[in-house]
């Protein structure tokens, strides 16, 4: 009952948040200088052409009227038409979303594996040089933002020692017809693991760049929680039962130590997705972020609005999922 109520409140909050985002993005991008119509016309277009196009896209109406029209359309699932690409925004945006989702999830997996491994090693070899090495590594990784890591990776593995692709989601020579835009997932479901390998290799560099700072945060927080947990009585008791230190860490300490990290990953994951905007650009990765930059450059207002709303919706959903995961993983909350 209370749980259902809590869920309802959450959904309501999400709706209000999205409305707020819609209002802000709609009015904000209209205050920013730059005329979308002027951008799309060739030089030497007449005043008449401009007026005609403005009427076509509804820019002749008042701001408030425009908002009402757009808001009403959005509620009906119509996000308008992109000015620069002349296609429905929803089609464009949903077409690109899978690419960004796959990149972000890949980065998340790398961050969890890398950060988790470092936290584990730091805990296993606590109070030794190995732990100090983990601290130094994570400290360094954390003090450099993801786009700089991207440049480092491009320089190292794209230029000096070119082993990884640093450009594009798929190689132009790949002979494979995708039915969906979830390339990696689709290839895996169709059991074409060669294609999966190819795709993972293509997106490994951008994913790693996104993952490094998050991996460092995970390593630091998880190691600290694990080390605190290792002192607790039930861990000591487990040790007397004959288990190895590795087993004690992974089975006894980890399930109790992981909650704060999980919450943090939830928050940081939304930042990571935000990071795709620049990272996708740097690696010419055909995702939502890359499209967002083009949309801004072209002053493509409907497209910007669509992308921002989609990102906002994604973030609120992720937050909800993380909160629910925390409840599921914590028996005390589950029975409350």
């Amino acid at each position: 009952m209370t749980l259902l109520r809590a869920l309802f409140m959450r959904l309501l909050t999400m709706a209000i948040t999205l409305f707020g985002v819609a209002v802000v993005v709609f009015f904000l991008i209209r205050v920013v200088p730059g005329n979308p119509i002027a951008m799309m016309l060739p030089p030497g277009a007449t005043e008449e052409d401009i007026t005609r196009l403005q009427a076509l896209y509804g820019f002749d109406k008042s701001l408030f009227q425009q908002f009402l029209i757009w808001g009403g359309d959005v509620l009906r699932g119509d996000f308008g038409t992109s000015i620069s690409l002349r296609q429905p925004v929803s089609e464009l945006v949903l077409g690109r979303l899978p690419a960004t989702l796959e990149l972000s999830l890949f980065a998340l997996v790398i961050a969890i594996l890398l950060g988790g491994l470092m936290a584990f090693l730091g805990t296993l070899y606590r109070h030794s040089m190995a732990e100090a090495a983990v601290d130094v590594t994570s400290g360094t990784a954390l003090s450099v933002p993801d786009f700089l890591w991207a440049l480092v990776l491009i320089l190292l593995f794209g230029v000096l020692w070119p082993v990884f692709s640093i450009s594009g989601r798929v190689s132009p020579s790949l002979d494979f017809d995708f039915a969906t835009n979830f390339y990696i997932i689709e290839a895996a479901l169709r059991l074409r693991f060669d294609v999966v390998g190819h795709l993972l290799g293509r997106s490994f560099m951008p994913a790693l760049a996104l993952a490094i700072p998050l991996a460092a945060i995970i390593a630091q927080l998880l190691k600290q929680s694990l080390k605190e947990t290792m002192h607790l009585d039930y861990v000591t008791l487990a040790r007397t039962k004959g288990y190895s230190e590795t087993w004690v860490i992974l089975s006894e300490a980890l399930p109790n130590a992981v909650l704060p990290t999980l919450t943090l990953i939830g928050v940081q994951f939304t930042f990571l997705i935000g990071g795709t905007v620049i990272i996708e650009r740097l690696f010419s990765y055909e995702g939502l972020g890359n499209m967002a930059i083009d949309a801004v450059i072209n002053r493509d207002l409907p497209l910007i609005q669509g992308i921002v709303l989609l990102f906002a919706a994604l973030f609120t959903v992720i937050n909800l999922v993380v909160d629910m995961l925390c409840v599921i993983l914590n028996p005390k909350l589950r029975h409350a």
């Binding site: 009585d233 039930y234 000591t236 008791l237 007397t240 006894e252 005390k332």
Partner: peptide, 15 residues
Amino acid sequence: AALIPQDPLTALNPS
């Protein structure tokens, strides 16, 4: 060997 610990509130794994 086995241990009977001091504090029953902290000696069982909460999860």
